[in-house]
């Protein structure tokens, strides 16, 4: 009887210990809120904070149409966690797929860059160490990749609310 109780509760515990999927955009929202209100009431210049806001916690793209779908948003932060990477570039329809155009900066293995985009639907991918293609796990996959490597899509813009 007592043993069975322990078994059931242990099963519950193991079940509850499984990872829980947290919205990947949460990190970005935290960093954005922080950028708007620094600690101790200090005034901080906008750009360093925007750069800091690009350093996010997990593999994610800050999808602007999720953040702010009601208006046309044209500044996006793309983020990839790749602690082992020596370099990461963001390439896509917005920069002629040219790795030299959007090299990403790292802080603690979190690679980030900010890109300004006009409304539209863009395909993109991360190029790690100049050789390895990675899609963005937190963004919709580009289902029609014709070149045998993964890509993601981001859609910018939208009708006002």
């Amino acid at each position: 009887m007592f043993e069975r109780e322990d078994e059931t509760v242990e099963r519950v515990i193991q079940h509850l210990r499984r990872p829980v999927a947290i919205d990947p955009g949460l990190d970005a929202r935290v960093m954005r809120e922080i950028a708007q209100a620094p600690p101790n009431g200090r005034r901080v210049k906008l750009w360093p904070l925007l750069a800091a806001a690009a350093v996010l916690a997990t593999v994610l793209v800050v999808r602007p149409w999720i953040w702010n779908a009601a208006t046309t948003v044209d500044t996006l932060q793309f983020v990839l966690v790749a602690p082992q990477a020596a370099s990461v570039a963001l390439v896509g329809d917005f920069n002629d797929w040219d790795p030299a155009r959007s090299p990403m900066q790292t802080a603690h293995g979190v690679w980030a860059t900010v890109v300004r985009l006009a409304p539209g639907r863009y395909r993109y991918a991360f190029l790690v160490n100049g050789v390895e293609w990675r899609a963005d796990p937190s963004a919709p996959a580009a289902k029609d990749d014709e070149f045998g490597t993964p890509s993601s899509v981001v859609t910018v813009g939208g009708r006002g609310s």
Binding site: V20, L26, M31, I34, V55, H108
Partner: peptide, 21 residues
């Protein structure tokens, strides 16, 4: 400020699991 992103990264899943449950 970017260093805070690393802290968020470090704790988000662990704390997120607690909050969800």
């Amino acid at each position: 400020t970017g260093a805070y992103g690393a802290l968020v990264s470090r704790y988000r899943d662990r704390l997120g699991r607690y909050a969800v449950h």
